[in-house]
């Protein structure tokens, strides 16, 4: 298992660690059983993600993808953040070992979950924005992403 320098940098010096008080959207995915939990907090003003923070229980790749994913969505309209794919997170990190790709999927899912939470709080239907309900049901063993 070898991580590249960029991944190691985002692991050793993760960006955006922490919580946002009274966050506009919070999403949590993964479970202890499979060893990764990501929780993402969003501050959204006029549809723009003005701040994003995360807390992650997991391996080096889980921390690095959380860090990179929050960096990638900050300052973006939430509709654009919804288009963020796990592939884009992996590319931005300069690649991940194959067994760690599921960590990047978690990052994508965590962001979708946080935006979904935001939309529900706004009285909007996440499905209208293309978010499938229960994208992550916390059951990693039956997860198609693994």
């Amino acid at each position: 298992m070898i991580y590249n320098e960029k991944v190691m940098d985002h692991f050793a010096n993760p960006r955006n660690v922490g919580e946002i008080e009274n966050a506009d959207g919070v999403g949590e995915v993964g479970n202890v059983k499979c060893g990764d939990i990501m929780k993402i907090f969003l501050k959204i003003e006029n549809g723009i993600i003005v701040d994003a923070k995360f807390k992650t229980f997991g391996c080096g790749a889980a921390v690095a993808t959380s860090s990179m994913a929050t960096e990638l969505i900050k300052g973006k309209p939430f509709e654009e953040a919804l288009q963020l794919t796990n592939k884009a997170v992996v590319e931005a990190l300069g690649g991940l070992p194959p067994v760690k790709i599921h960590c990047s999927v978690l990052a994508e899912e965590a962001i979708k979950a946080a935006i979904s939470d935001y939309l529900v709080k706004q009285g909007l239907d996440p499905e209208l924005f293309g978010i499938k309900p229960g994208a992550c049901d916390h059951d990693c063993e039956s997860c198609s992403h693994v």
Partner: peptide, 14 residues
């Protein structure tokens, strides 16, 4: 408890 092994190993290695 509450932390994951690989993350600890990487930080120890650093």
């Amino acid at each position: 408890r509450f932390v994951e092994g690989e993350a600890m190993l990487l930080m120890l290695d650093m």
